[in-house]
Design a binder for these strands. Sequence first.
DNA 1: CTGTTAGCGCATTCAT
DNA 2: ATGAATGCGCTAACAG
Lengths: 368, 368
Amino acid sequence: MAARSNVTIADVAREAGVSTQTVSRVLNNKGEISPETRRLVSEVIQRLGYRPNSVARSLVTRRTLSLGLVVPDITNPFFPEIARGAEDTALAAGYSVFLCNTTEQAEREVAVLRLLEEKRVDGVVVCSARLPDDQLVPLLRRQRTVVLVNRIVPEGAAGVVRVDDADGTRQAVRHLIGGGRQRLAMLAGPPSSWGGRERLRGFREALRAADLAVDPELIVACPPYLEGGAHAARRVFLSGQAVDGLVCYNDLVAIGALQACRDLGVRVPEDVAVVGCDDILLASLVTPPLTTIRVSKYDIGASAVRLLLDRIATPRREAAEIVIRPALVARASTPEPDSAAETAAPTRPAAGGAAAGPPAAQAGNERG
Amino acid sequence: MAARSNVTIADVAREAGVSTQTVSRVLNNKGEISPETRRLVSEVIQRLGYRPNSVARSLVTRRTLSLGLVVPDITNPFFPEIARGAEDTALAAGYSVFLCNTTEQAEREVAVLRLLEEKRVDGVVVCSARLPDDQLVPLLRRQRTVVLVNRIVPEGAAGVVRVDDADGTRQAVRHLIGGGRQRLAMLAGPPSSWGGRERLRGFREALRAADLAVDPELIVACPPYLEGGAHAARRVFLSGQAVDGLVCYNDLVAIGALQACRDLGVRVPEDVAVVGCDDILLASLVTPPLTTIRVSKYDIGASAVRLLLDRIATPRREAAEIVIRPALVARASTPEPDSAAETAAPTRPAAGGAAAGPPAAQAGNERG
DNA sequence: CTGTTAGCGCATTCAT
DNA sequence: ATGAATGCGCTAACAG
């Protein structure tokens, strides 16, 4: 019956013949209340269809039980799972989450951060912030608590969840070398991306570790999308360099590269092996299925919110960091590794879990 | 400098030597204010780093400038674009949006709807609600304003944005028949899905319109995911029926079917033609690229929020409905249509627009 | 053009 | 175990 809840705690109190305080107590299970009045009040609440007004509640408690999740673009296949992980974790703790797309625009990053501030959210998870430090940090300081994903800021103003991207590309390079490849190129994504720089660092380190030269011409930046990858791959092939392996910024770039290969008649993996990064759903479905560096995106989102809630509960100024370790998933876009080389690769078999992802993390991903 | 905003309107007022009311006025551009005091107040606001507390504001204005977006699972490739369209539109109007995943569970659908109610959001967009009418409708009535996506409820309690699913499968069937196919099966998705039933209806109607029999054995329900499609396709093929065309509930199901075909050595499109639905990114990237029924998901989200904001601005009880018309995108998973048959197909050439999705044409579909 | 008085719906503090 | 008073930060009436 009761339509839009205009019913207030005062209405309930009057109807039940008690004070508003008593109603508030049964709502929040606080203080001792006689079972009898509790029953009575509950019954009236039910009958009137009363729902507490969390706006009023927030004003006095100074907690909104709301979080902000800032992502560049939920349409980018990397972020939906993060969002799921974040929302599941938040909801389980009674929090709701505002989803904010920045569409990769600095101004909108500023705008949503301001908006979240006015909303007085209890905390914010910011993914892949593009803003430079001098603009970002002041904005973050104004938030109640912050967790950054894949971005480091100078001071410990925020908790951090990050993927060990450098380690990921290191694994990729080792895998390719293990498969007999020697002339590797990297389609490095946008230079502005912190993760991209890390991946590039891992690429360089792994090459050096294998006593292979790092040819600057074989490191090409590109937009992190299909076309970016296709374009960059074409440039590499048409440059006349003898490349036999491609390490890519992410799966979209890698799949773009795959398309370029098909267009140019380059066979994968016979002529060129391709490794992606992220293991988005697409990766396993393209032809050939893409070898890639998997990172549990659900886990990133869940960890970020867990860390956030932890810091909300017990505020600390020190920085906390959670590192998510990626793992290589070998598929058909790269050759089988020579058995000798590969068995040497997994230095710390325990760390990141095997390529067969951790069950708990996957559970969140399952559909229906 | 100013850290977490404890600064209130009173602080600003005191510092500027005016009343809180005056500050409020410059914040909201209300009433006439002398340019001088406006400048003064603005300067103090700036200096103190004051940010209005929207919680307090909402308590008195009874508007939160927040919306809820309820989706089954943001991880399902169908929803991120809807979310983007919704968020873009909301943000442009000064609204923020709570993202809520129901994970296809009835209880969680109830839970998030209750939560949004307590948050006093100004409106809710609910996508593909799974709850039965008798549970859903009461919950919706408690919301301020509601727009439903791909779900109809008896009374005009909500605005509706829906895809003309029946028309979509009708197009698919005509396309297949135009390509010379006669024995069509439908992988129909979950029977509980309203859209699924519509698509099935379109399938039946189009077959009848072409004087083809509808074989109940060739209509198989399945979970709306890859495995569901693969499994269902296998069942169809192994049943011994001579099928030469597959109309699928959505692209994931279709891609699952593609995998089953590959596994069973069935050639696509030579032996069997396959049509998906939705045109998710994947569809164009699998092998062979998937012919599918495209619907502008961004537009669904944007239209839903536009309709919602419209109803928030001027509440009405009558139902409003926006119908989004899908369009067939022909790719390699279906044969080229016989020219004769195909030219006959587009009865109303203006309606759905060409396969190359027109940007503005979508707007033309609305009937506010 | 500006200040004063109220009160939004609730939880917190102190009484009883 | 319950009630009364107070105020969270802000805007909506009315003054002036």
